[in-house]
Amino acid sequence: MSGQQQIRAWGRRVPEFVNFLVQNTHPGVIRLDGDTASGRAYMSEVGRGCDGRSGVNSPSTTTATSAPRAPGSSPNASTRSGTSTRAP
């Protein structure tokens, strides 16, 4: 899944298969280096599907780096991010 359209379409379908989903985000560190900032947050999830199954996702790490953006560009134009899953 990539792009805003696909992410929005998936988000609209979530209530069809998820009874509830709780995401816990624990802030990490933000590092500043001149005009550039980078940070990391730790997230875990617990939820239950409409079919009664439930589970806990392993903690994952989300990182983002932001640099100055060009005038007139979108607010997210200079942000890179990624997610990796780590074993508990």
Rank of each mutant, 00 (worst) to 15 (best):
1 M>C: 10
1 M>G: 15
2 S>K: 15
2 S>D: 13
2 S>C: 07
2 S>Y: 15
3 G>I: 12
4 Q>Y: 15
5 Q>V: 11
5 Q>T: 10
7 I>P: 01
8 R>Y: 11
9 A>F: 07
10 W>G: 08
11 G>F: 06
12 R>K: 15
13 R>K: 15
14 V>K: 11
16 E>G: 05
16 E>L: 13
17 F>C: 07
17 F>D: 07
17 F>G: 12
18 V>H: 00
19 N>C: 01
20 F>G: 06
20 F>N: 11
20 F>W: 15
21 L>F: 10
21 L>D: 10
24 N>A: 09
25 T>F: 03
25 T>P: 00
29 V>N: 09
29 V>H: 10
30 I>Q: 07
30 I>F: 06
31 R>H: 12
31 R>E: 12
31 R>T: 14
31 R>Y: 08
32 L>P: 01
33 D>L: 04
33 D>N: 14
33 D>Y: 02
33 D>F: 03
34 G>W: 04
35 D>F: 02
37 A>C: 10
37 A>G: 06
37 A>F: 07
37 A>V: 14
40 R>K: 13
40 R>A: 05
40 R>M: 09
40 R>F: 01
41 A>E: 13
41 A>N: 14
41 A>G: 02
41 A>P: 00
42 Y>A: 04
43 M>S: 14
43 M>I: 14
44 S>N: 12
45 E>W: 12
45 E>K: 05
45 E>L: 10
46 V>R: 09
47 G>V: 07
47 G>H: 06
48 R>S: 08
48 R>K: 13
48 R>L: 07
49 G>Y: 04
49 G>S: 10
49 G>R: 12
50 C>P: 00
51 D>T: 06
51 D>E: 04
52 G>P: 02
53 R>H: 09
55 G>Y: 04
55 G>I: 06
56 V>S: 05
56 V>A: 08
56 V>L: 05
57 N>T: 08
57 N>M: 12
58 S>Q: 09
59 P>Q: 11
60 S>P: 01
60 S>H: 08
60 S>A: 09
61 T>Y: 02
62 T>H: 12
63 T>P: 01
64 A>K: 03
64 A>M: 15
65 T>Y: 02
65 T>Q: 10
65 T>A: 08
66 S>F: 03
66 S>V: 15
67 A>I: 08
67 A>W: 02
68 P>G: 04
68 P>Q: 03
68 P>A: 14
69 R>W: 00
70 A>G: 00
71 P>E: 07
74 S>C: 06
74 S>K: 11
75 P>F: 09
75 P>Y: 08
76 N>S: 10
76 N>H: 10
76 N>P: 01
77 A>I: 09
78 S>Y: 02
78 S>E: 00
78 S>W: 03
78 S>C: 11
79 T>S: 04
79 T>R: 13
80 R>D: 00
80 R>G: 00
80 R>F: 05
80 R>E: 00
81 S>G: 11
81 S>E: 04
82 G>H: 12
83 T>G: 02
84 S>K: 09
84 S>P: 01
85 T>H: 05
85 T>S: 06
86 R>A: 13
86 R>Q: 12
87 A>V: 06
87 A>Y: 05
88 P>Q: 04
88 P>G: 08
88 P>I: 00
88 P>S: 08
